[in-house]
Amino acid sequence: MVDPVTEKFTVQVCYATSLREYLQELTVEQGCTIEQAIRQSGVLDAIPGIDLALHPVGLYGKKKPLETVLRARDRIEIYRPLVADPKESRRKRAEKKAQPG
């Protein structure tokens, strides 16, 4: 909910690895972008190695550009790079299944 007096609202920033989860709720001002909120959250200091030029980001599972303006209660997600290309993995599984024996 947006506070009508201060025009501020809360959002969450999250990032997870197989070993660690980072979830930070913070208050931002109207017009705040995904990138600004990520920088304000402290996640870049808490988890070294996150590079916003390489790591895709999004809201609720949908990729978005860093310039996306936030709304109240948005959950910003920082995604890890894929280890394997899903299309390539499916192709290899299909080839293996099709082989006799």
Rank of each mutant, 00 (worst) to 15 (best):
A98Y: 06
L52D: 01
G42T: 02
I38S: 00
Q12H: 11
Q99D: 14
A84F: 13
A72M: 01
P86G: 07
I34Q: 06
S89V: 14
A72W: 00
K97S: 11
K8N: 14
L26V: 05
G31N: 11
P56S: 14
K64N: 05
F9Y: 12
L52G: 01
P56Y: 08
D3Q: 02
R71W: 08
E77T: 07
L23D: 08
R39W: 02
H55M: 04
C14T: 14
Y22S: 03
K64I: 03
E95K: 10
M1Q: 15
V69K: 13
E35I: 01
R20N: 15
Y15V: 06
A16H: 03
E77P: 05
M1Y: 14
I47G: 03
Q24F: 02
L82A: 09
A94Q: 13
K92C: 11
A84M: 10
L52E: 03
L82G: 05
G58C: 03
R80W: 13
S41K: 00
G42H: 02
Q12D: 09
T6Q: 03
Y15A: 06
T10F: 13
V43I: 09
T27Q: 11
E7Y: 06
L26R: 01
T10H: 13
R20G: 12
S41N: 00
P86C: 10
Y79H: 09
G31C: 04
A16C: 06
E7M: 11
T17P: 02
Y60M: 11
K64V: 02
I76A: 05
E95F: 12
L26C: 04
G101I: 04
V43W: 00
G42M: 02
P81S: 07
I78P: 00
E25Y: 11
E67C: 12
D85I: 06
R93S: 05
C32A: 12
Q40W: 08
G61R: 06
R71Y: 09
R93V: 07
R39C: 03
K87F: 12
R75G: 07
P48S: 11
P4F: 00
I78L: 05
P65V: 01
K64A: 09
P81L: 15
P65N: 00
T68G: 01
E88I: 14
D45L: 15
Y79T: 07
L70A: 04
V57P: 03
K97D: 14
T27Y: 02
L26H: 02
A53S: 10
G61L: 08
E88L: 11
P48I: 08
E21T: 14
P65A: 01
V5C: 08
P86R: 07
A98E: 12
Q40L: 14
P4K: 01
I47M: 09
V11P: 02
T17I: 06
Y15S: 06
C32K: 07
S89K: 11
E88Q: 15
G101Q: 09
V69T: 13
V5T: 15
E77I: 05
Y22C: 04
Q40R: 09
